[in-house]
Amino acid sequence: MTSADNEPAPLDADAAEGFLRMFHTAHPEAGPVGPRLSRVRDEIAGTGTYRHTPDELAYGARIALRDSGWCTSGLPWRRLKVRDLRGLRNAAAVAGECVEHLRLATNGGEIRPLITVFAPDAPGAPGPCIWNEQLVRYAGHPDGTGDRRYTAFTAAVREMGWRPPGEPGRFDVLPLVVETAHEGAKLFTVPPDVVHEVCLEHPDLPWFGQLGLRWHAVPVITHMRLSIGGVSYPAAPFNSWFVGSEIGARSLADENACGAARPVAEALGLDTTAERSLWRDRAVVELNRAVLHSFDLAEVTITDHHAEALHRLSWLRSRQRSSGGRPAFRLDPGAARRARAGGPGRFAPAPAETTAPQSPGRLAELLRRRAGV
């Protein structure tokens, strides 16, 4: 852990000015930029940072998503709904609202592009961070069962007190790890009832469903920080929707992930003794077909990699070149390590404290309180 990881960097006043000018150019109804710049300069001089207006926050989040390449079709970033929860710094509240984010984004299968923005970094008050790469990820167990990309993360959260709900399986949802400067790292179980999963079957292969493959519906990215006009939001989970090959080729087929290509190839009767037979390629095609077919059958929003490739070419031709002052999603080295290895913590030089995961009932209670039930 370095000081750059756990201490908020000094605010870049030039980035603040560049962003505000950009915002006022795009929103002339906001009035002249001069008075706003004057207030922001005074706020930075007095506190070391400044607070975005709700409109500035929403604009910055949409531009960051547009420029990130996560959703190049242009549709998700235009539809992006921004949940402004900058007042939340406690781990339980952050975890509860992440669960609410997943519920709202799933929307019965008609996926809603959504971002939830928690407290920013500020002098003497760093914001919370989320260790997980995505809100829903599957455990990787020591015997090779599950998603092997998260074997180290799984081992780390087991040391912190997490246990699978039963016998270790291929699709055990990992707990959410939220870390704050004043609480350390805390575990929270993601309630099963908000994890919408699609069971995979194939349009032409009746036996495919017997493989027992499935995948979650919404890719909520949780470990990237949102940077807008010099202000850094270390916890700002966001989602659009899946590209089919992210599931079929990268997550299910890859030997370093779920390793499903070989059993599919064997069921197809292919020669798996040599890569030259291209058994792996043929298996990946059938996995991708099964993903798209099953998501369509379940009426869950998804796109395919051919459509996404066309959108990306158009995006590359038209996008603005990035600069230091433009809003962006960023991944720092510490966050990348935590997402795969389960540490080290952002704030504590010692290993994260052992803590039993909070139950789904606790998160449900938080959500009920928020709704006033």
Rank of each mutant, 00 (worst) to 15 (best):
Y50N: 10
Y50W: 07
Y50H: 05
Y50R: 11
R51G: 10
R51Y: 00
R51S: 13
R51D: 14
R51T: 14
H52G: 02
H52A: 12
H52D: 07
H52C: 07
T53R: 12
T53V: 01
T53F: 14
T53H: 01
P54K: 08
P54L: 04
P54F: 11
D55I: 06
D55P: 12
D55S: 15
D55M: 10
D55T: 15
E56N: 13
E56R: 00
E56P: 11
E56F: 11
E56W: 01
L57H: 07
L57I: 14
L57D: 05
A58S: 12
A58R: 11
A58W: 04
Y59C: 02
Y59T: 11
Y59R: 03
G60A: 06
R62W: 00
R62P: 06
R62C: 10
I63R: 01
I63S: 03
I63P: 06
I63F: 02
I63A: 10
A64G: 00
A64C: 07
A64N: 05
L65C: 11
L65N: 08
L65T: 10
R66F: 02
R66T: 08
R66I: 01
R66N: 01
R66K: 14
R66C: 11
R66H: 10
R66D: 01
D67K: 00
D67H: 12
D67W: 05
S68D: 02
S68W: 06
G69C: 01
G69H: 00
W70Q: 13
C71P: 01
C71K: 01
C71A: 13
T72H: 02
T72M: 05
T72G: 02
S73V: 04
S73M: 03
S73P: 02
S73I: 03
G74V: 09
G74D: 07
L75M: 05
L75G: 05
P76V: 06
P76E: 04
P76Q: 04
P76S: 03
W77I: 02
W77E: 13
W77D: 14
R78K: 15
R78F: 01
R78N: 11
R78M: 09
R79Q: 15
R79A: 02
R79P: 11
L80S: 02
L80Y: 09
L80Q: 09
K81T: 15
K81H: 13
K81W: 03
K81V: 07
V82H: 00
V82L: 06
V82P: 10
R83D: 14
R83T: 12
R83S: 07
R83I: 13
D84R: 02
D84H: 14
D84N: 14
D84P: 06
L85Y: 09
L85Q: 12
